[in-house]
Every structure is written in structure tokens, then in C-alpha cells.
Design a protein around this nucleic acid. Structure first.
Length: 294
DNA sequence: GACTGTTTAAGGTTGT
DNA sequence: ACAACCTTAAACAGTC
């Protein structure tokens, strides 16, 4: 059994694929696009595991950027000198992780044949900005509706508009200072009245203390606002990525009821976020294998 | 030279 | 069992 103690779990491999990590980094940026070096930086800052063997995982990450249609390359403008292009998320890639597992996508995002691939070259920026504006407009409309119909808010904000599971309000809430539908993130979450605490936070914080927010407050594991850990009623998509595999600090025998996860959530209507995979640890798979140094 | 981006290949893991 | 997905490695070309 793993022994938490003098060696923390900070060097554990996070339960995210490179696609997830990259998407998190991009979503975390204000412009929703980042150069490669900043993606590296983001990952290394938050996940100490990736401060080592940089050549290995960075090669993999570059492979993913090129290989997956969910990432689009946006050339630098002349006034933005530097190496490499910016990378952004394809506007249509939001439902890749609809099963709630950020370890493995249900389906690979691929640009449909009928849909022309994102333009390359200078046009890519316009393409990207156009989609950004569209999404912003949709979010504004939803917030306006929520203001008029408060009971609509928990629904209107998320399910249909829940395009990016990597959205910073869902994943990296700690540093998020942006807006949701034109409102400050914090006030939106407060408006929704999500529950804050519960044993889940301590469970996950013991798993990845390095990504915990150090200060008191509503932020939990991964720097995620704890309120975002609970799905609103009727929402099937977990709002935050949780490891789908038991880990040394979260044994398979651990059971958390929906009430534990979301004390104020009706168990009958949702709230169960943990999704256990196959019970046993498997060898070899880099995502499953969790090295614990004692 | 270092970094970035693309492509191919192989092997392991997971979902159906 | 099979297909799809993920990770890793490596080669190569282009750019800064």
C-alpha cells in the first residue's frame, strides 16, 4: 500500500491525457490560445510530474497538437514576434470528453468531411476569432435569460452551453479571473449556489496536494472551485475531471455517495461524479501506473 | 543549435 | 476479440 508521508504524491502522473492537459492550458489563457512554450510552462507549473523527462512528454504533446484536429494552429501576427504559432481549441471539440473521463475520450474529435478543416495561414486567426465571438454571444444570451428566470440559471449556464469541459471554470478555477457570460466567474458560481465542501476535496487533495490551492476558501483539488465539483440537476456531464481509476490514496474500496460529493444535490437527480474504472492497477499503461516513491 | 511542427510506427490500455 | 484511443519514440524539415 502506498504510504503518504514524507514523499508527497506531487510526482505522480496526473490523471489527464496530453490532450486534456493541453486543452486546460489553452482554456486557461486569456486569449484562449497559447504558444507551445507557454503550454509547456502551464503544465510544468501545475504538475511537478512533468518537470522531469521534458523531452519525452513534450515530444508527445507536440505530436498530439499536430495529430488531433481538436487543436488548431494560429499564426502569429507580425507584431507578435516569436517562435512557433499559437495553438487554440477547435470550437467544435467541446464534447470530446462527454463521458466525464478526462483520461480517455469517448471519441476522437475529427473535423467532419462536410465541414471544411480550419483554414491554415493568416485566415486561421479570423476563423478562430469568429467562433470566439459566436460563443461569447451565446453565453451572453444565456446569462440574460438566467437573470430573468433565476431557476433557469443552473441549466442555462451549463448543459447546452457546456461546450468546453476544459473551461477554466471547470478545471483550473484557482487562477481564473475571467468572466462567464459577461459576469465575473466568482459571482456566477455564487449565483448558482453550488455546495462547497465535502470529503471529496480532502480525498483528492491527498492525491495531488501540489495542485491544491494553498489558501482557505472554496477552491479544491486541481485548483478547482469546489462548487464546480457538483453538477447541477439534470446535467450529465461532470463539471470537473476526476480520475476514473482508483489511486493509492483513493482505493477502489472507497465509496462516496452522491451526498458526500454534493451534499445539497438530490442523489436521485445527479451528483455522482466518481467513475471507477476497472478495479485493479494494470502494468505498463502510463496513465494507470502510479509510481509512489517511499 | 535549439525550438517547433509533421509524420510514421509500435505497443499498451480501454470501451464495446 | 476488436476497434479506438493514448503514449512514446524517432526521423525529418522548417524557423528563429
Amino acid at each position: 500500500m502506498p504510504r503518504p508521508g514524507k514523499s508527497s504524491y506531487s510526482d505522480q502522473k496526473p490523471p489527464y491525457s496530453y490532450i486534456s492537459l493541453t486543452a486546460m492550458a489553452i482554456q486557461h489563457s486569456q486569449e484562449k490560445m497559447l504558444p507551445l512554450s507557454d503550454i509547456y510552462k502551464f503544465i510544468m507549473e501545475r504538475f511537478p510530474y512533468y518537470r522531469e523527462h521534458t523531452q519525452r512528454w513534450q515530444n508527445s504533446l507536440r505530436h498530439n497538437l499536430s495529430f488531433n484536429d481538436c487543436f488548431i494552429k494560429i499564426p502569429r501576427r507580425p507584431e507578435q514576434p516569436g517562435k512557433g504559432s499559437f495553438w487554440a481549441l477547435h470550437p467544435g471539440c467541446g464534447d470530446m470528453f462527454e463521458n466525464g473521463s478526462f483520461l480517455r475520450r469517448r471519441k476522437r474529435f475529427k473535423v467532419a468531411r462536410a465541414e471544411p478543416p480550419p483554414p491554415k495561414g493568416p485566415q486561421a486567426l479570423h476563423y478562430y476569432q469568429h467562433h470566439q465571438q459566436q460563443q461569447h454571444a451565446q453565453a451572453q444570451a444565456k446569462m440574460a435569460a438566467a437573470e430573468r428566470l433565476p431557476h433557469y440559471a443552473p441549466y442555462g449556464l451549463q448543459p447546452s452551453g457546456f461546450k468546453h469541459p476544459f473551461a477554466i471554470e471547470n478545471i483550473i478555477g484557482r487562477d481564473y479571473k475571467g468572466v462567464v457570460g459577461g459576469l465575473p466567474f466568482a459571482s456566477v458560481m455564487h449565483h448558482l449556489g453550488y455546495p462547497v465542501s465535502g470529503p471529496l476535496g480532502s480525498v483528492v487533495s491527498s492525491m495531488w496536494p501540489h495542485v491544491m490551492d494553498s489558501g482557505p476558501g472554496d477552491y479544491g483539488p486541481f485548483g478547482v472551485h469546489m462548487k464546480a465539483l457538483c453538477s447541477p440537476p439534470g446535467q450529465t456531464l461532470p463539471a470537473v475531471p476526476l480520475p476514473i481509476k482508483p489511486t493509492p490514496s483513493m482505493p477502489a474500496t472507497l465509496s462516496l455517495s452522491p451526498q458526500h460529493l454534493c451534499p445539497s444535490t438530490n442523489p436521485a437527480t445527479g451528483g455522482a461524479l466518481l467513475e471507477h474504472g476497472r478495479g485493479s492497477e494494470s502494468k505498463g499503461g502510463s496513465l494507470q501506473s502510479v509510481e509512489v516513491h517511499s
